[in-house]
Simulated scan of single mutants.
Amino acid sequence: MTKGQRAGDSAIAVEVEKDKSYYWCSCGKSSKQPFCDGSHKGTEFTPLAYKADETKKMFFCSCKQTNNQPFCDGSHNK
């Protein structure tokens, strides 16, 4: 799988709400990081849907190099 361009160098903390869907930007081009704004159109990338199973703080990847999409796995430190 091709990984997107770096959009940041750290995780982005988001307070997700139970049963709400979030669409993580996989291309790295979105201006609404870590979420999709449609900037991937015309590329091989598509947003990754995540539905929260509870309300809590989650750490979304902004470097787009994670092996645990859409969440940070520390790949920005490598």
Rank of each mutant, 00 (worst) to 15 (best):
F59R: 02
E17I: 06
C27A: 01
T43R: 09
T2A: 15
S39I: 09
E15D: 13
P34H: 00
I12Y: 14
D19L: 02
L48S: 09
N77I: 03
C36D: 01
K18R: 12
M1D: 12
P34W: 02
S30G: 00
F45I: 03
N67I: 11
D19T: 10
S62D: 08
K29D: 11
S75E: 04
A7T: 07
Q69W: 06
F71H: 02
W24M: 11
N77K: 15
M58C: 11
G4A: 09
A49T: 12
E54P: 10
K78N: 02
S31K: 13
Y50M: 08
G28I: 01
A13I: 03
G8R: 12
R6W: 13
N68C: 09
W24R: 11
E54N: 11
A52L: 07
K32P: 01
K3N: 10
S10D: 07
G8F: 12
K20Y: 04
G74Q: 03
D37G: 04
P47L: 08
C72S: 08
D19F: 03
R6F: 12
G42M: 02
N68M: 13
K29S: 06
F60A: 01
G74T: 06
N68Q: 14
Q5H: 13
N77D: 08
S39C: 04
Q5P: 05
K41L: 11
E15C: 07
D9F: 10
E54M: 04
K51Y: 06
K41S: 13
F71L: 13
K51V: 06
F59V: 01
D19M: 10
H76N: 03
K20C: 03
N77P: 05
K78C: 02
G4Q: 07
T66I: 10
K56R: 13
G4L: 03
G28D: 03
A13F: 03
F35I: 01
G74Y: 06
F59K: 00
A13S: 14
A52Q: 10
K64H: 05
K56T: 06
Q65I: 01
G8Y: 12
A11T: 05
A11G: 12
S62T: 08
P47M: 08
F59E: 07
S62E: 00
G38D: 00
T55Q: 05
K64D: 00
K56M: 10
H76L: 09
S21W: 03
H40T: 03
A52S: 12
D73G: 15
Y23N: 07
K51I: 08
N68P: 08
F71M: 02
C36R: 00
Q69I: 14
T66K: 02
W24C: 08
N67V: 11
K3R: 13
A11H: 11
C63H: 02
A11M: 13
E54A: 08
L48F: 12
C72E: 06
Q69M: 13
